[in-house]
Amino acid sequence: MKGGWLKIYAIGYLLFLYAPIILLPIFAFNDATIIAFPLKGFTTQWFSELATIPALHSAVLNSLLIAVTTAVVSTVLGVCAARAAARYQFPGKKGIMGAIMLPLVLPEIIVAVSLLVVLLQLGLSLGAWTVILGHVLICTPFSIAILNSAFQNLDMSMEEASYDLGETPWSTFRLITLPLVMPGIISSLLIGFTISLDEFIIAFFLTGAEPTLPVYLWSQLRFPQKIPVVMALGTILVLLSIILLTMAEYFRRRGIARAGGKDTGGFL
């Protein structure tokens, strides 16, 4: 069989990649406070306990607010940059785009501490909005990466046709360009939301007195008796991420198909 050994290796590797996610629900439904084998029995106790923790609920609301705002702002910034990069030629384009994409490779702790230093020097108080500032910075490169393919697959002659038929630049953008790149925009919103919801380090440094969900989770990991509840929460989060990602992938593929491009696979 062609690639037989490679296929076995690939399946083994996928198991390695999925091992933590597969274990998560197993322990979330396990009727024991200690996270270890052998399993004790089936319970939904940990899930029902989730409903009784007010600190968790405010963390969730805080995270949702941050994630939605981050997704919207980084997508708007992403649209500007991706459109500029795809449509126009200007001196220094490579350098400018490189600087914008830099947070993608910069260690997050560097982004976090450098923002913290500036905010404290300016005497600003930390809160949800400072986390949003940091999250937009790291989400924008992802938005651009997704939107780049959407804008590059765009056929410029369609816009020209629209101008020739008397539409203004704004109405052309609204009626022609936007609908064509819409799937990319939705996919970028979903990815930004997912990244922000999950991001820990920047939130840890910049969140102040109101923790985000990952910061709350981090504080709970120290108490062994709370771990099963964390597992239950994690199961819900993983499920949510998978749903969001599947939607993002669906829209990304539809976008490529709509613009008549060829699928090259993957988000990055």
Binding site: P20, D198, F200, P214, G234, L237, S241, I242
Partner: peptide, 8 residues
């Protein structure tokens, strides 16, 4: 798997 909660 890369997109699911890093902490967890």
């Amino acid at each position: 798997p890369f997109w699911t909660s890093y902490l967890i």
